[in-house]
Design a protein around this nucleic acid. Structure first.
Length: 1042
RNA sequence: GCCCGGGUGGUGGAAUGGUAGACACGCAGGACUUAAAAUCCUGUGGCCGUUGAGGCCGUACGGGUUCGAGUCCCGUCCCGGGCACCA
């Protein structure tokens, strides 16, 4: 019987379901292994052929580990809250829950088709109230805690309250808002209840605050920094502006140092760790207080990472939003400064980004005193200093910092060199730390390290400032003005947010009539008429109307898989103690700083509360690459094409008869002169295609003014029938000869749809064609199926110009798979044609899991052929079982054991593409040996089980087993079978390969040397010269140096 | 500008300092066939040469370390990703 994947796969996927083969429990007595995929957002488009890449890879590892005797958890779920479902709801009026449900159903079906062995009894959905009850619960814990730097962990807010009651906050070293005032115990105790609650918000790990946010008017919501790219929203590309709004925040800054240190203990790709380090942005430096001249007791505090350059500070710069700007500005400068502040505030994020190079600013007229030199330096404001970083003020050192240098040049400020190694300061700043200090009083002659420690010491001694560590990371905005997300478990009473009691959770998303924001700009939840918190029949409080962002539900979900149906806790103690954390986590690199950083933050917090057993939730992270699409491109002629066509094919051969000609420099540019004019006669030529009818009159006027006779060529005929140009050309020629004004055509065709085969486009300039994506389903080997294409709307009126071989060729491009590029390949179609096992193996075979690589369905035939050949080792014609019990030969054993070793090693290092190669080699070898022996083929079936589970299960049962191959035992290799009797050594002479020798495997170095030196080819090179060195790398190579 | 990756045949890729191009796709030739599909066999980095010899070049480019470098080091170029007035 031929290998028939469809029948086999249907049979076993049903069997697995019936026998609950993939059900996982905690009672096993085996070591645990937790492998996790980043769960998908179920979009309406379904899975394309690239999505399952990581799922297949993790499925292979999961099955392999199970065969190796581990109790493997490999779950799947859905990150089901999000913008697209809500946008769809707004447009179509369909409840997001309905479309989400539908999308999930489709995703699950597609995943099952691939044969992924998920335990679906553990499926989770972030939009399920039973799930988001616990997302809200964790939010509540964050609200109830603050971060104490002395304890270096989160502590209950009551702890803080007790300390405030006793001693105020002067000695409390905790994460809090920058503007938190120092208060005494007495002040605290005198606070009203409301004042106390508002004050505590400055410490809570989640809190509402007025802040500048990325507001996207088109989406009607706030976006986090990582959802904004180049000033537009990542999703949809809508403009984003900065707006001051009340928003919930997460105090992730409290964990900056912990998140940085934690990176040391996890096996994650360096690139991801680097991105997180960069995002956290730790920099070591100093705070320095500069007294303001003429304002007693008033200081400007600055942050610098180059305290050693303080003697080179020739001015100061404040951010335009800096709180001291108004205080400092002198009357003379008042108008200028106010104008600048206003201008700076008006600029959008986008303008700022695009105008980075422009130097702008204004002088406040005030002066600050450099504490080290006692000299007065002017104070400016400029928007290259950011209000949100450091103290929003800097000391400007133009000799060492390029931005300061630019500013100094623009405003005529002095540049003082401070290191003897600085060069070319008249052209640019030199940020070197080399050399010795000059012009720097107490640090003159010192090196960088010496200078820094001396200055820091002085700062502390004189109370001018102190050493300081600064982080770039900002608190994370946590609310969205959206419907389709988790409600915050918060209600408002008298302008103060209160936490909903845990007993009220989950706070379920209410039904509303429309999904848009209200007319007054409130979030959609404000539409829920009777949605109020009523602790007693007499009270009714408004809930918080914003919802949680997309990353909330994904910041702890790996715990829910451990115990998905628990109603008493997010996860039971027992399950947590058993599974502990994710061993391998697989997902795209695009989550490097979003999901992966927030998840680590929540995990550290849960760890502080003793709720989870590990500080870091994922021991090992693997970034899978993206499978790109191979788009097919067709070329539709634009009017420039007809002009160029006329020129090349029709006019050019004739025009030389009329002598030198003026050819406009840039024909592509829209101009009102004609396309061609002759220097020697008074003839001008204008080539006009159908779209330029309005241009003729202007051209005619120009010609009249120039006193030229005008030849106007319409291209309609050529466009309609390009082969008819001979007649046209002849008419042009006649016109040129007679020098009569001549109009080729008076009419303009409505639309021309000329599509040109790719190879024909090469002769024309690129702007002659529009490049249009065409559905890859219509294209085979880059040739468009014209018959089927004509049935598509885009080609209904098409006119195809085929190439010399009578085929219509398309160009191709490798790019992201997307609906709009018509390059999406659906795994269902591939599976339908080749089978799931074939699809799985081919997807792995494409290349390393981390690399991005293009999908090309053509190559799958290689894997298909391999599976057929493998099958034919077991099953012959008429479904005969070919396997016999005969004793295997040494060669057969070596082939098998080499494969076991290589495949085992390669799975362990996650090199699954080479595993597939090893299977192909093994199959080719066994076929050459005509091997049909059970002792060889049964282990091969087990080896195959992780990769092609259906096929392996079929073979396994044909061997007579009645339980699943998933519970077989992974074969071990025996070194004894790997050794050959003879070893072939390549022999190099002076590093160049010259020949091979075959020696006994047991031969020692001296024996090998004797054999090598006897060889003719060796003698030829050694000749009379002596052998200087003889190197044998055992089992590898021989190198002779002559 | 800064920080990470990466650059190997026509294509996807292999090679953990030890014969560069495994394994495939594609292509060319052949077998079977009325034909096609399917299947099988042979060849396939370039150049010179041979037609059962062999030689030279070759992993972006230029140097270096080494008996030996795609792999390690230094410099240059190019491509991809991330961050970006972060003081």
């Amino acid at each position: 019987m031929e290998y028939e994947p469809r029948a086999i796969e249907k049979k076993w996927s049903d069997w697995w379901k019936k026998h609950q083969t993939y059900r996982v429990t905690e009672v096993s007595g085996k070591p645990k292994f937790y492998i996790l995929n980043m769960f998908p957002y179920p979009s309406g488009a379904g899975l394309h052929v690239g999505h399952p890449l990581g799922y297949i890879a993790s499925d292979i590892v999961a099955r392999y580990k199970r065969l190796c005797g581990f109790n493997v958890l490999n779950p799947m779920g859905f990150d089901a809250f999000g913008l697209p479902a809500e946008q769809y709801a707004i447009e179509m009026g369909i409840h997001p829950a309905v479309s989400t449900e539908e999308n999930i159903r489709r995703y699950r079906q597609q995943m099952e088709n691939v044969g992924l062995g998920f335990d679906w009894s553990r499926e989770i959905r972030t939009c399920d109230p039973k799930y988001y009850k616990w997302t809200q619960w964790i939010f509540a814990r964050l609200f109830e805690h603050y971060y104490d730097y002395d304890a270096d962990k989160a502590l209950p807010i009551e702890h803080l309250v007790r300390r405030l009651e006793k001693e105020g906050n002067a000695r409390i070293n905790a994460a809090c808002d920058d503007d938190t005032p120092i208060i005494t115990a007495r002040q605290w105790n005198d606070f009203s209840e409301k004042e106390k609650l508002l004050f505590l918000l400055k410490y809570r790990l989640t809190f509402p605050e007025e802040s500048f946010v990325n507001w996207c008017p088109a989406l009607g919501t706030v976006l986090s920094n990582d959802e904004v790219k180049d000033g537009v929203s990542e999703r949809g590309g809508y403009p984003v502006e900065r707006k001051r709004m009340k928003q919930w925040s997460m105090r992730i800054t409290a964990y900056a140092e912990r998140l940085l240190r934690g990176l040391e203990e996890i096996n994650w790709p360096e690139a991801v760790k680097d991105q997180q380090r960069n995002w956290i942005g730790r920099s070591q430096g100093a705070l320095v207080r500069f007294p303001v001249q003429g304002h007693d007791g008033l200081f400007i505090e600055i942050f610098t990472t180059r305290i050693d350059t303080i003697y080179g500070a020739t001015f100061m710069v404040l951010a335009p939003e800096h709180e001291l700007v108004n205080t400092l500005t002198t009357p003379a400068q008042w108008a200028e400064v106010q104008a600048y502040v206003k201008w700076a505030a008006s600029r959008s994020e986008r303008e700022r980004i695009s105008e980075v190079k422009r130097v702008t600013g204004a002088n406040t007229g005030a002066f600050a005193i450099n504490p080290f030199t006692s000299e007065a330096i002017p104070i400016y404001i400029a928007d290259y200093v950011l209000a949100g970083y450091g103290t929003g003020a800097i000391m400007a050192v133009p000799s060492g910092d390029q931005r300061d240098w630019n500013f100094a040049k623009a405003f005529g400020l002095p540049v003082i060199p401070i290191l003897d190694s600085q060069r070319n300061l008249d052209q640019a700043a030199d940020p070197t730390k080399e050399g010795r200090y000059i012009n720097s009083d107490i640090i003159n002659g010192l090196t960088y390290e010496e200078a820094v420690s001396k200055l820091l010491q002085w700062l502390e001694e004189k109370n001018w400032g102190k050493a300081r560590i600064q982080y770039k990371i900002r608190n994370a905005i946590f609310s969205r003005q959206r419907y389709w997300g988790e409600p915050l478990p918060i209600y408002w009473k008298d302008g103060v947010p209160y936490l909903l009691p845990d007993s009220e959770l989950p706070l379920v998303l209410p039904e509303i009539d429309k999904y848009l924001p209200t007319e007054t700009g409130e979030p959609p939840l404000a539409r829920a008429q009777h949605w109020r918190y009523r602790p007693t029949p007499d009270e009714a409080y408004e809930y918080e109307y914003s919802t949680m962002p997309g990353w909330a539900g994904s910041s702890w979900y790996w715990y829910r898989y451990m115990d998905p149906h628990n109603n008493e806790a997010f996860c039971s103690r027992e399950a947590l103690e058993y599974w502990r954390c994710v061993d391998w986590y697989i997902g795209g690199a695009e989550h490097a700083v979003g999901h992966l950083l927030y998840s680590r933050f929540w995990n550290h917090f849960l760890y502080d509360l003793g709720l989870v057993p590990e500080r870091e939730f994922a021991k090992k992270l693997i970034n899978q690459g993206m499978i790109q699409g191979r788009s097919s491109i067709t070329f539709r002629a634009k009017e420039a094409f007809y002009e160029e066509y006329l020129w090349l094919k029709v006019l050019k051969p004739y025009l030389y008869e009329f002598g030198p000609m003026q050819i406009p420099k840039n024909r592509a540019e829209e101009s009102f002169t004609y396309d061609f004019a002759f220097a020697v006669n008074d003839l001008a030529i204008e080539v006009v295609s159908w779209k330029k009818a309005d241009k003729i009159e202007r051209v005619r006027q120009t010609a009249e003014a120039d006193n030229k006779r005008l030849l106007v060529l319409f291209t309609e005929e050529l466009a309609a029938n390009i082969n008819a140009h001979k007649e046209t050309a002849e008419r042009i020629r006649q016109a040129l000869l007679s020098r009569e004004p001549f109009f080729m055509s008076q009419s303009v065709p409505e639309v021309e749809q000329l599509f040109v085969s790719y190879e024909l486009t090469q002769k024309y300039s690129p702007d002659c064609f529009s490049r249009l994506h065409v559905d890859v389903a219509l294209v085979t080997d880059d040739v468009l199926d014209l018959e089927r294409a004509r049935q598509r709307p885009m080609f209904q009126k098409a006119n195809f110009k085929v190439g010399p071989q009578g085929r219509f060729q398309c160009a191709y491009e490798i790019e992201k798979m997307s609906k709009s590029k018509y390059n999406v390949v659906n795994p269902d179609d591939v599976i339908e044609q080749y089978g799931a096992d074939c699809y799985r193996m081919y997807e792995m075979f494409l290349g390393p899991i981390e690399a991005s690589k293009p999908w090309d369905t053509k190559g799958i035939t290689g894997v298909q052929g391999f599976l057929k050949r493998l099958w034919s080792l077991y099953v012959g014609p008429n479904d005969t079982w070919l396997v016999q019990d005969a004793e295997p030969s040494r060669e057969e054993l070596r082939a098998l054991h080499t494969a076991i070793k290589k495949i085992t090693d390669d799975i362990e290092r996650f090199s699954l593409n080479t595993c597939v190669s090893h299977f192909m080699i093994l199959t080719n070898e066994l076929r050459a040996l005509k091997c049909h022996k059970k002792a060889i083929l049964e282990p091969v079936a087990i080896l195959l089980a992780p990769f092609a589970p259906h096929l392996a299960e079929e073979l396994w049962h044909r061997f007579g087993h009645e339980t699943t191959v998933c519970d077989a035992t992974w074969p071990a290799w025996n070194e004894r079978y790997l050794e050959a009797d003879k070893v072939v050594y390549p022999v190099q002479i002076n590093g160049k390969h010259r020949g091979n020798i075959e020696v006994d495997a047991a031969a020692n170095q001296e024996e090998i040397k004797q054999i090598a030196l006897q060889q003719d080819f060796v003698q030829r090179y050694v000749g009379n010269g002596s052998v200087k060195k003889f190197i044998v790398v055992p089992g590898r190579i021989v190198n002779i140096v002559v």
